[in-house]
Each structure stands twice: as structure tokens, then as C-alpha cells.
Amino acid sequence: MILILSNKYDVSVDFIIKELQDRDYPYLRLNTEDLAELEVTTKLPDFDVIVEKQGKKVNLTEEVGSVWYRRPGEPFEFVDEENKPDLGTIEYVKEQWSAWLQSLETLPDATWVNFPETNRRMESKIRQLRLADDIGFNTPNTVVTNSSEKVEELFEGRETVISKALSSPLISEKDQDKFVFSTQLDEPPSENDDSVSVCPTIFQEALLPKIDYRVTVIGDTVLPVKIEGEKGDMPVDWRTEKEDVQFIQTDLPRSVEQLCREYVSEAGLLFGAIDLVERDGEFVFLEINPNGEWGWLQKPWDVPVAENLTELLIEHDTR
């Protein structure tokens, strides 16, 4: 059986479930923001983990061989504000369910795609670039700093520099979340620029002009797409104009394709979404999202992520 941990609004999960249903393959989807609607029991010392959902009992210890750790939600995440308990209660309940979910990481002989701690470790942009350099990828000249002076040094001999977030680029606000995209700087920041000094930021040489690639790696399968603008020139960060770009299935040079496989393997992952750019015939590694979105590649661009990911999950389900 395949265990899927996500949230009820995750479209990518819907693609996988359709594949599993077409194969008549057993699975259990747990939308983790609704865990309180389940009955869960963990018995020790035998370590039987039993989940009852809609009258059906599943012994995770005995039945689960693959776990897809997708995008778990949090208790009360989608509950209307007027129906939520006080903040202290929310935090307490969240911590208890988080501890129970973490205990699932000890399910015997279960393969995780990907293991949560590995996902967390590989979210580090600095770790990503170091690994890329170690295995032979080209990487951009990079400075991570909150010093305007160090940014100015990176500008020496360059007309532009790219800045981007060191960690999660999401700013959560009450009415609407905001996303911090990669930004092109055409001049160094001023000496006392608070937007630089307030926290460390990634600054990189601008690789322009460029061709962008998103490379989805699933086990040994490599699914590259070339990202092209419908209006010609591409923005610095294609995500700012996602509705106006095309994702064209393509081939990579064999050496680059193999580097992508090797990177995901060395990172301890079974799935990863790698961003590359090509400039003057050279491929340069930018970053990897170990739990990257891909539903928008599946449809309407027909990139067979769901089919290959389903096969991977089934292959590793030894129950």
C-alpha cells in the first residue's frame, strides 16, 4: 500500500491517485489538516500504527511499503477564523499531530519520497550549490551576505547581479501571501541599505541572456523541459510570467542528464525538481526543489510526471 501525506487542495496528488485507481492499486491519502477527523492508535512495544478512516481500519506498520510525503497541511489551516480555537490551543494541537506524523518516519521497511529530514536538509540553497559544485556542475559566482559592501564587490566587472531569497521565498500575511521572486539589480545597493542589512540574501552573477530549464528527476528517470516565452524575451525569474511561458519537452546532453541523476542520488532523494540555465552552450545549476510542484507540467504540457512517480512508488512498495 502507498501512503500519501498531503493536503486536500493538492492537485498533484489528484494526478497520482488517478494513476493508482487506473491500476487498481491500494493507497491511503491522509490530508493532514483533517487528521482530527481520523482515529489513530499507536501500540507499543509492537509498534502497530492503526488509522481508522470512514469506517476502514488500516495497519500502517503491516501494509505500507511506500510513503509519498507531499505537502502536509496543518490542523485548522482551512477553518474559518470565527470557528478556530484560541492560538494556544492551535499550537498545542499542531505540535501533537506533528509528533505523531514524525513517528511514521520509523515505519519498518517503508520507502519515503522523499524522507522529510532529507527534504529539509536539501532546502538549504548553500548546501545545494556546494553539492552541485562537488559533483561537477557549473555554478554561478555567488555571495550570501547582508553586507552592501560585499554585494558591491560582486558587481565589479559586471553590469547586473541577481538577488534571491536564501530560504523560503514566501511571506505570509493575513489577507494574501506574497512570493519573493529573483530580482535583477542594475546597480549596487547603497552603503546603509536596510533591505540588504536586515538579513542574509543570495546575490549571484547574472547569467544573461539565458535559456531556462526545469528538470524533474524521478529515480533514474529525467524529464527536462525548456522554458520559452510566448512573447520572446524571458524575464529574470520565469515564475513572474508563468501564464505566458511554454514548457517544451526536450533532451539534455547526456553528461548533463547524468549529472542530474547523480545530484538527486547524492542528495539522498528519489524525487527532485532542478532548475538549470544554459548560456553560451554551457549548462549552469541554479537550485533544486526537493519537493517541487509539477502539476502544471502534467497538464496542459503532458510531461509524464504522474506516470513515472506512480511507477516509482509502486516499485518501492514491497508490502
Rank of each mutant, 00 (worst) to 15 (best):
Y9M: 10
Y9N: 09
D14Y: 12
I17M: 14
E19Q: 09
Y25M: 04
R29H: 13
L30V: 03
N31H: 09
E37L: 12
V40M: 08
V40E: 09
T41K: 14
T41P: 12
T41R: 14
T42L: 11
V49W: 11
I50Y: 08
Q54V: 10
K56H: 12
N59Y: 09
V64Y: 03
G65L: 09
V67L: 02
R70D: 01
P72G: 02
G73H: 04
G73S: 07
V79A: 15
E82A: 05
P85I: 14
G88K: 11
V93Q: 05
E95R: 15
S98T: 14
S98K: 15
A99M: 12
A99I: 13
Q102E: 15
Q102I: 12
S103K: 08
L104T: 01
T106V: 12
A110W: 00
N114Q: 03
F115S: 00
E123F: 01
K125A: 01
I126A: 05
R130L: 05
L131F: 03
I135N: 02
G136R: 00
N141I: 13
T145H: 03
S147C: 11
S147Q: 09
E152W: 11
E156L: 12
G157L: 13
E159D: 14
S163Q: 08
S163H: 04
I171W: 11
S172Q: 15
K174C: 06
Q176C: 09
D177N: 15
S182I: 07
T183I: 15
E187V: 10
E187K: 14
S190R: 15
S195P: 07
V196Y: 10
S197Q: 11
V198P: 02
P200K: 04
F203G: 07
L207A: 07
I211S: 06
I211F: 05
P224S: 02
V225H: 02
K226D: 01
E228S: 08
E228I: 09
G232E: 07
G232S: 01
D233K: 10
M234A: 09
M234E: 11
V236C: 14
D237C: 09
W238F: 13
W238N: 04
F247E: 03
Q249P: 05
T250K: 00
Y263M: 00
S265V: 10
L270W: 02
F271K: 05
G272Y: 00
E278D: 10
G281I: 00
F283H: 02
F285N: 00
E287N: 04
N289P: 07
N289G: 07
N291Y: 05
G292F: 03
E293R: 11
E293C: 06
L297N: 08
P300T: 06
W301N: 05
P304L: 10
A306R: 06
A306L: 10
E307I: 10
T310W: 00
I314C: 04
E315Y: 13
D317F: 03
R319H: 13
